[in-house]
């Protein structure tokens, strides 16, 4: 602010010298502009509400179909017997840039499985939905195809989803 003492060249811009005479008149261009605007108005007023080009979605009642790749809240996929496919290899928690996945492994008697998660929690408030956990999973155990936005919650605890919650989430396209 010190240079305010210095002489400052003030100016008020004037563009009228560069204008053609009908640009100077205001009215023709303004009328054309209003024409475009009124065209939109009457198209939306008289047109069919479904076909009209309002882009609005009446959200809670009406929902758009998300694309196939859309990354929503997580779920853990299941084996045919209902247990999780996760083998607690920690790949997803390693790959996660937000460090929102916490896993504690446990031994399982089944020789084909060997390991399973004792605790598997995802803090959905920390999650940035980048999809790296899905990329990192060597067992196709974690997916983000639930189509669920993480909703608003009343407490932070509610946002920490545990194993049961993650298993019970269903995929949009079938529940593998």
């Amino acid at each position: 602010m010190a240079e305010s003492k210095k002489e400052i060249k003030t100016y008020i811009s004037d563009a009228s010298d560069d204008m053609t005479w009908h640009e100077r008149l205001y009215v023709p261009a303004l009328a054309k502009g209003f024409g475009v605007f009124a065209k939109h108005f009457f198209r939306n007023l008289l047109g069919d509400k479904e076909e009209g080009d309002t882009g609005t979605i009446q959200y809670p009642e009406q929902k758009i179909a998300y694309s196939e790749r859309w990354r929503g809240a997580h779920r853990l996929t299941k084996r045919p017997d209902g247990s999780t496919k996760c083998v607690a290899c920690m790949m997803c928690s390693t790959a996660c840039p937000a460090q929102c996945i916490h896993i504690i492994a446990k031994e399982v008697d089944d020789p084909n499985v060997e390991k399973a998660p004792e605790v598997f929690v995802i803090d959905e408030l920390r999650c940035i939905f980048c999809g790296m956990c899905v990329e990192a999973c060597p067992k196709d155990a974690i997916r983000m195809d639930t189509g669920i936005h993480v909703p608003a919650m009343y407490s932070r605890e509610e946002a920490v989803w545990d194993l049961d919650k993650l298993i019970s989430n269903k995929g949009v396209r079938g529940n593998v």
Partner: peptide, 8 residues
């Protein structure tokens, strides 16, 4: 149409 020739 609405802006480029609009004198305002």
């Amino acid at each position: 149409v609405m802006l480029t020739k609009n004198r305002i």
